[in-house]
């Protein structure tokens, strides 16, 4: 058994590339870092979006690596305006298409998708997103959550998890790094009473793919929060990006679930949770944490997971979590 070979979720999904659409909408040649979980997510999300769609994208890593004039990696009609306004641009697009269709100037309504990073979504773009969700536009918003402002050089955002080292939340004599808990953006989206909200991760391609499909097909606003592993910012090995996504799910740090008309459901349900340290210890951004903080993160993760399970009406997984010694004995 290799060191990280214990992947419970392999029981749930089988990756069969030939069953997925072959057409590429996010082309190779973009400038994303090696091992970019976000680029992987974009590739599969755009496949799930399919034809007849228009994408509005926020300023950020993905915009910068994919759209340097005069080149583009986007096969969809695509627009970038600014950092904090993507949901507003998308709402304008959706409204514009709607009136043109009503006036008979447009035969078919394109699907409208907005995309932005965690900074562009949970911080500076939150107002525009809230407005667009509240107005009930028929669009899907996808948040690429790599848990910091990676494009500008790994500064903390409200989506940065507790304890993480970033360039603006550095650990020091008086600090353990990020001292706040990750903003619960999914709960904020759910609170708008929109028909579809989900979390996803490109380490679970089928789960991601079908959630995007469902979001696109749902009339009204849909929100998908995609955990996007960032080796550059997380200080992790580039070949571990997919595995880190799986570990985030298997430790309960980033559960995969969907909320359909307010009803929660876990879509990937590990029967046992791994210790969070499995996830933390292979990331340089958590390297400075002592046992005390690691234990705190473990407790917090379990408490949050339990709350989620209660919302899902699901049975509680076997606790305590799998011990590290148990894993090693396998």
């Amino acid at each position: 058994m290799e060191k990280f070979g214990y992947a419970q979720s392999q029981k749930f999904d089988t990756y069969a590339s030939r069953l997925m659409p072959r057409k590429e909408y996010f082309t190779s040649g973009h400038r994303a870092c090696q091992g970019c979980g976000e680029a992987l997510a974009v590739r599969w999300v755009t496949k799930a979006i399919g034809e007849d769609a228009v994408i509005a994208h926020a300023t950020g890593c993905m915009e910068i690596v994919s759209s340097g004039m005069p080149q583009t990696a986007w096969m969809h009609p695509w627009i970038h305006v600014a950092f904090e306004n993507t949901a507003a641009v998308a709402s304008g697009l959706e409204t514009g298409f709607r009136i043109l269709a009503r006036k008979g100037k447009l035969a078919k309504l394109p699907k409208v998708v907005a995309m932005g990073g965690d900074g562009g979504t949970t911080d500076i773009g939150l107002q525009a997103l809230s407005g667009a969700l509240e107005r009930g536009h028929n669009f899907t918003y996808v948040c690429w959550d790599n848990e910091a402002y990676m494009n500008t050089g790994i500064q903390r955002s409200s989506s940065t998890p507790y304890g993480a080292m970033t360039t603006t939340s550095p650990p020091g004599k008086l600090s353990i790094g990020q001292t706040t808990q990750k903003k619960n953006m999914v709960a904020i989206a759910v609170a708008h009473g929109i028909p579809y909200v989900a979390t996803a991760c490109p380490s679970y391609l089928f789960d991601l793919f079908f959630k995007v499909k469902r979001a696109i097909e749902t009339p009204g606003p849909a929100y998908i929060h995609v955990l996007s592993v960032c080796p550059t910012g997380w200080r992790s090995a580039t070949e571990l990006s997919v595995r880190l996504g799986r570990l985030a799910v298997e430790t309960g740090v980033f559960p995969l679930f969907e909320v359909v008309n307010g009803k929660y459901r876990l879509t990937v349900e590990p029967p046992k949770l791994r210790p969070v340290n499995d996830y933390l210890k292979i990331q340089g951004r958590f390297r400075h944490l002592r046992d005390k903080e690691r234990a705190f993160i473990q407790r917090h993760t379990l408490a949050a997971y339990q709350l989620l399970l209660e919302k899902c009406g699901a049975s509680y997984p076997e606790f305590p979590v799998i011990s590290e010694t148990e894993e090693e004995s396998e």
């Binding site: 228009v54 509005a56 627009i79 305006v81 600014a82 904090e84 306004n85 507003a88 641009v89 998308a90 709402s91 304008g92 697009l93 959706e94 409204t95 514009g96 298409f97 043109l100 107002q127 525009a128 809230s130 407005g131 509240e134």
Partner: peptide, 16 residues
């Protein structure tokens, strides 16, 4: 919900 979004939405509408 704001003028910032008004102009942003106008860009979307015009792009449509």
């Amino acid at each position: 919900e704001s003028e910032h979004s008004a102009m942003s939405a106008c860009i979307g509408m015009s792009a449509a």
